[in-house]
Design a binder for these strands. Sequence first.
RNA 1: GCCGCCGUAGUAUAGCCCGGUCUAGUAUGCGGGCCUGUCGAGCCCGUGACCCGGGUUCAAAUCCCGGCGGCGGCGCCA
Length: 417
Amino acid sequence: MRLCGWVLRSKVIGKVVIVEVSGSSVKPYVLVGKEDVDPGLYNTLKDLPLGSAICFEGEPSETQKSKRGVEYNVKSVKVYSKPSEPLPVELVGKVPSLLDTRIKYRWLLLRNPLEKAIFKVRQSVIEAARRYLIENGFIEVHTPKIVAAGAEGGATLFKVQYFEREAYLSQSPQLYKQMLVSSLPRVFEITPYFRAEKFNTTRHLNESWGIDVEQGFIDGLEDVLNTLENLVAFIVNYVRENNKEELETLGVELPRISTPFKRLRFEEAIDILRSNGVEVQESEDLSDQAERELGKIMAEKGHDLYFIVGFPWPSTGFYYMREEDGYHTRKFDLDYRGLEIASGGQREHRYERLLEAMKLKGLDPSNFSFYLEAFKYGMPPHGGFGLGVERLLMQMLGLSNIREAAIFVRDRTRLIP
RNA sequence: GCCGCCGUAGUAUAGCCCGGUCUAGUAUGCGGGCCUGUCGAGCCCGUGACCCGGGUUCAAAUCCCGGCGGCGGCGCCA
């Protein structure tokens, strides 16, 4: 068997040399050279600097003494590349790097089992989502990332020059997804979101990824909530089953998730906070701190994941369906341990009402004519959501900063690498 | 945009408050030596740093001002 990777650790103890090689799995390959058994191999391994790119021919050894990796009996080693200078960061965690350094050298640090484990789990999240949605009749689509208008107005959009016109990077596939539901009853897209918001927090990125779903012919909001809760439960349980090595490496205990998730009405959430002594302003949305407090309270009651439904109209987008009272909407958030990981709702599919809602929000319908036209020819009742990949990963793995969940980070100050 | 904290070898840090004792300490990495399986092995020798600019002072890593960079909080949101 031929295996390849990079020298991660190397230790010479007298006449024995032990080399760990970072390959495709989280746990390294372990190569052992003994001077009195195979002097040639011993010398080759002894002289390999950290970071060397090598391949070796070998089979798993009958003696497995290493606590970190899988040992191989090595027949031959081929060295493809040696570093021209010492590595800029520790890959083994003897001297942990600061987050800033970790982000700068992520492409190199991915040789480290911990760092690699995070992104192998991320891969599983995407794989599980795609599998679940396809199995449930959703079609994967791709919508434009260069757009003429955003879902919410222009404040948070990145401008780009599109020949002689001004265009924007898409902050959400929302409007396109809805248009597609006029022909394809179930669609989803795994997509980047671009947000030009100048925040600097542990849970915001300016380029992030979402699992975006839209579903037509629904009987009500419950259909959308069902899809989302089952999707999230499938993803988490999939990771639990398929990433045992990664979770162990990261020291993460991932409890099995069952559905349904608790549904809290917006007012209920505020009441719970107040009855637990948390001051909540009379407002149309929950502050981040309030959300965190609610997360703690809900966790004590055994709810890691819960919906908050029925957000007031003043704090929501124009496209959410309003209840008869004109104040509550069918917009919801999904919170995971006090952090919003998804939001969505039932949309307004009735043309006249949609037009009226846009005007109420101060938007000019003529800027959205391409979108509005889709509501003229038999738009079914529909709803959907966007699920943040980095946020889901962050909460699943207990990461303290969302930047840990993105390989190459785009935030307020980072544009390279 | 506002507020707070921080910037010392490749990496991670001590020293800064109370200026001189700093020829800037330690770990890791790197170079060399010892050790017959290490588990962040261990031991010995060597190597390399005060973000930039200005100011105060006999004397600045240390105090002051400006710049640049990082971390976090708020708003907003996935």
